[in-house]
Lab assay of single mutants.
Amino acid sequence: GLPEGWEMRFTVDGIPYFVDHNRRTTTYIDPRTG
């Protein structure tokens, strides 16, 4: 799974992105792969 505090969501286009609730940021880069 994802690191603690992270969540995976999808855009309206079906593109996955990642929400970091710890820092309240979003990124398209998987936190597991950097």
Rank of each mutant, 00 (worst) to 15 (best):
Pro31His: 04
Thr33Lys: 11
Pro31Thr: 01
Gly1Ile: 12
His21Glu: 08
Arg23Ile: 09
Arg9Ala: 08
Thr33Arg: 07
His21Arg: 08
Asn22Lys: 08
Ile15Gln: 08
Thr25Phe: 15
Tyr28Arg: 07
Phe18Val: 00
Arg23Gly: 14
Met8Leu: 09
Ile15Gly: 02
Gly34Asn: 12
Arg24Trp: 13
Pro3Asp: 06
Ile29His: 12
Thr33His: 12
Phe18Thr: 00
Gly14Leu: 07
Val19His: 06
Arg24Pro: 07
Arg24Phe: 14
Phe18Ser: 00
Tyr17Thr: 03
Arg24Asp: 15
Arg23Lys: 13
Thr33Asp: 13
Glu7Met: 06
Val19Thr: 07
Thr27Pro: 02
Asp13Gly: 13
Pro3Phe: 04
Ile15His: 09
Asp20Arg: 02
Pro3Tyr: 04
Glu4Tyr: 11
Asp20Gln: 02
Pro16Asp: 02
Asp30Thr: 00
Ile29Pro: 03
Glu4Ala: 12
Glu4Trp: 11
Asn22Leu: 12
Tyr17Glu: 05
Val19Arg: 05
His21Gln: 09
Arg32Thr: 07
Pro31Tyr: 03
Thr25Ile: 15
Pro16Phe: 07
Phe10Ile: 10
Pro16Tyr: 05
Met8His: 02
Val19Pro: 01
Thr33Gly: 12
Tyr28Met: 11
Pro31Lys: 02
Arg23Asp: 13
Arg23Leu: 13
Asp30Gln: 00
Gly1Met: 14
Thr33Ser: 12
Gly34Ser: 14
Phe18Pro: 00
Glu7Lys: 03
Thr11Asp: 15
Asp20Leu: 05
Val12Glu: 13
Arg23His: 15
Val19Tyr: 15
Arg9Pro: 00
Thr27Lys: 04
Gly34His: 14
Gly14Pro: 00
Val12Pro: 14
Tyr17Ala: 02
Gly14Glu: 05
Asp30Trp: 01
Tyr17Gln: 06
Phe18Ile: 01
Arg32Pro: 06
His21Leu: 08
Val12Met: 12
Thr26Gln: 14
Thr27Val: 06
Phe10Val: 08
Asp30Leu: 00
Glu7Leu: 04
Phe18Leu: 01
Tyr28His: 11
Asp13Gln: 13
Phe10Met: 10
Arg24Ser: 14
Ile29Arg: 12
Glu7Val: 09
Gly34Leu: 15
Ile29Leu: 12
Thr11Tyr: 02
Arg9Glu: 06
Met8Phe: 04
Arg9Leu: 12
Gly14Arg: 07
Trp6His: 01
Arg9Tyr: 09
Val19Asn: 01
Val12Ile: 13
Asn22Ser: 10
Ile15Phe: 07
Arg23Ser: 15
Arg9Met: 09
Trp6Asp: 00
Thr11Ser: 09
Tyr17Gly: 00
Tyr28Pro: 08
Gly34Asp: 14
Tyr28Thr: 09
Ile15Lys: 09
